[in-house]
């Protein structure tokens, strides 16, 4: 089946098997390997991308379901400089091995778009769908709170 969708501002078209998962489409068809796979049960959030600005687990969606949507992956977040959420993670040592990081950053960007000035508790609740095994979350939470203070956090680009 043919799908046509906008990824990081570029229109991408491809013939896909209906069962192809969106995350495999992004990684294997488009070569956008920044989106990682950490589990097979929609638990870990490593594969989080933005669809129309909302965080979504790309392992729990078929590429055919994403036909016609606008997707932002981790590769689409930074311009010349890092996106404020990325910069905040860097400043606050919000990552170690970096495997959960793309998903965590996308989830945080979506969270801040919905709640620009969250409390610590709201950040923790907002990241409930993303697992990290390295940081103990302490510096991730700190990073997201710091990003919220870098006013204004631009909404992740949704291409027109």
């Amino acid at each position: 089946m043919r799908v046509s969708l906008t990824v990081n501002g570029k229109l991408r078209e491809s013939e896909v098997e209906p069962r192809l998962l969106l995350v495999h489409f992004l990684r294997d068809v488009l070569g956008l390997t920044g989106t990682n796979i950490g589990c097979d049960t929609s638990s870990c959030g490593a594969c989080t991308v933005l669809i129309g600005g909302d965080s979504v687990k790309s392992c729990t969606m078929l590429a055919v379901q994403a036909d016609g949507t606008e997707i932002t992956t981790i590769e689409g977040l930074a311009g010349e400089a890092l996106h404020p959420v990325q910069e905040a993670f860097r400043q606050n040592h919000g990552l170690q091995c970096g495997y959960c990081t793309p998903g965590m950053v996308m989830a945080a960007a979506s969270l801040l778009a919905e709640q620009p000035h969250p409390s610590e508790e709201e950040v923790r609740a907002g990241l409930e769908g993303n697992l990290c095994r390295c940081t103990g979350y302490h510096n991730i939470v700190k990073s997201v709170l710091a990003a919220a203070d870098m006013a204004p956090v631009p909404a992740p680009a949704v291409a027109s």
Binding site: K57, S110, L111, G126, G129
Partner: peptide, 9 residues
């Protein structure tokens, strides 16, 4: 329900 990503879809 679930987590924010689940609630978005």
């Amino acid at each position: 329900i679930g987590d924010p990503q689940v609630r978005h879809r």
